[in-house]
Simulated assay, not measured.
Amino acid sequence: MTLPPPTTPMRIAFLTTLVPNTLRTGSEIATRAILSVLEDLGHEVTLFAYGRAPFHVASPVETVLLATIPVESATAPRREQAAWAWRSLRSGLPISSEKYNYLPPDRLEAEIARTNPDLLIVDHVNLYPFVNGLARRLPLGVIFHDVQAISYAMVAEKSARPWWRAIYAREARLNARLERRAGAEARFSLFLSEADAEEARTRFGIAAPAVLPLFFPAPPDPAPALAPAYDIGLIGTWSWPPVRQGIAWFLYEVVPRLPPDLSIAVAGSGSETLSSDRIQRLGLVPSARAFLASLRVSAVPTTAGTGVQIKTLELAATGTPAVSTPLGVRGLDGLPETITVADGPQAFADALVEAVRRPKPRAAAAGHAWNEARRDAARQTLHDALTKLG
């Protein structure tokens, strides 16, 4: 572990969407990584976040649970989805913000102020409108997990139905307005990839965005030694529109190009709703690590979105053989040789067949070294951002 020179410990209020008490989703993994770096640097962190109902598991840091709420759009009750849309129409904020608007802003700000923090970090720009009043009272920084204006614009462009195209285009416009405002008002803005930081400079006029290299936060245990149960596997949260677009591309463009004797399994929330006779739909699996260990090769068919693809990050950190699209490795430099990048459906299918017929050995040591180097870089980036605050 390489630590930068110490700074004066700070009391940091950390506002995020979900308590990262599991490593189920990419958002939780990214938040857990950022929290671990703040702890490495010696800061006292209080987490403010919502939880999924029912909420059972303890948080990794001191936590103020704001409420238990429905989160994933695919599983939220229709009345909740309608409420998000209605609030969005009234407020002019994106639906992706209003789905976390369950406390009046004055009450949320009072909860945060009660801990007398030296700094507020807003982890996910969606939450910024509900606490921007605090920016006049204490330093405030924002972490952009992605650039949602671009992500939603990508989805809108590829949506087949006019009403979905209109809804996603509106989300893109409203997120652009919000991201520009947050970047202008915050004392620092951190992005998870250089591409996102560059978009912030050119599109939103953010003067000095910094890149926070992301890493997989949990030291990877040795993968269980399992005989391969599937040739090809995919795991993710398939309800998020850019991710849903990627699995559709895989099913309709890549799978028809694969030999019929190859077995394909898809795991994760939303996989049970996929329509294809060629795949086994597993839904949520007890252990993502065990699932990955049961594959000859993992597929990352990312075709839209910004930020860092967390699943690729985990595969690289654990030395797991995988094939990814170029967009699936965005923000990840110097990848281990276990990750193959293929562009286009035929090249992607060919790379998967090659990985199944001539499998690469798992490279846990190389993946761990790559991951630790990124962790060191993340510590330095956060150290620099907090040092500039004085």
Rank of each mutant, 00 (worst) to 15 (best):
Y168S: 01
R165H: 05
G233Y: 07
L23Y: 08
V308K: 06
Q346L: 13
R170K: 05
M10G: 09
L15K: 00
V254D: 10
G270C: 10
L284Q: 15
V211W: 09
T273V: 06
I95K: 02
D40Y: 09
L335N: 09
P228N: 14
P256V: 14
A160H: 05
F48M: 01
G42T: 11
R201L: 05
V254P: 11
T338Q: 08
L251H: 11
V308P: 07
Y168W: 04
Q346Y: 11
D146W: 00
F204M: 06
E179K: 03
T8F: 05
V155C: 02
L258M: 08
L192R: 02
A153V: 01
E157L: 06
E253V: 02
G390C: 09
G26C: 11
L226S: 11
E157C: 00
L108Q: 05
R32T: 04
P242V: 10
P70W: 00
S96K: 03
E44D: 15
L226Y: 11
A176K: 00
A13N: 08
E272K: 07
A385W: 12
A200W: 08
P219K: 13
L295N: 08
R181A: 09
R357L: 15
R170I: 01
A207P: 06
I121P: 02
E354L: 12
T202E: 10
A153R: 05
A248Q: 15
A153H: 03
G390M: 08
P260E: 15
V255N: 13
T302L: 11
A227G: 13
P60G: 03
S239L: 10
F48W: 00
R136N: 04
A85M: 03
R52N: 01
R114S: 09
A184V: 04
S298N: 04
A67Y: 00
V122P: 05
P242T: 12
A248N: 15
A176D: 03
F14C: 01
A82V: 07
I121C: 00
R87D: 04
V255Y: 12
D231T: 12
I95D: 04
A208K: 13
V323T: 04
Q148W: 03
N116R: 14
L386R: 12
W86D: 03
S276A: 07
A200R: 06
D196A: 08
R114Q: 09
E253G: 07
P222A: 15
N132M: 06
L178P: 04
P209S: 12
W240Q: 06
P321L: 10
R203T: 14
H56M: 13
P70S: 08
T8C: 08
D146P: 06
P104C: 04
L190S: 01
H145W: 02
I12C: 00
R165E: 02
L386Q: 13
D277P: 11
P336T: 09
R114H: 09
V147N: 03
I235V: 15
E198G: 03
G328Y: 11
D343Y: 10
T68L: 05
E179G: 02
Y102W: 12
T22M: 08
L389G: 13
A49F: 00
A351G: 11
A349P: 15
A169E: 00
L103V: 00
A373C: 13
S159A: 02
A290C: 08
L35K: 01
A229K: 14
P213A: 12
Q346V: 14
R278M: 07
R161H: 04
G205M: 06
T312Y: 04
I235F: 14
T306R: 09
Q346S: 14
R114K: 14
P242W: 09
P301C: 02
H56E: 14
G233S: 11
V142N: 08
L127I: 02
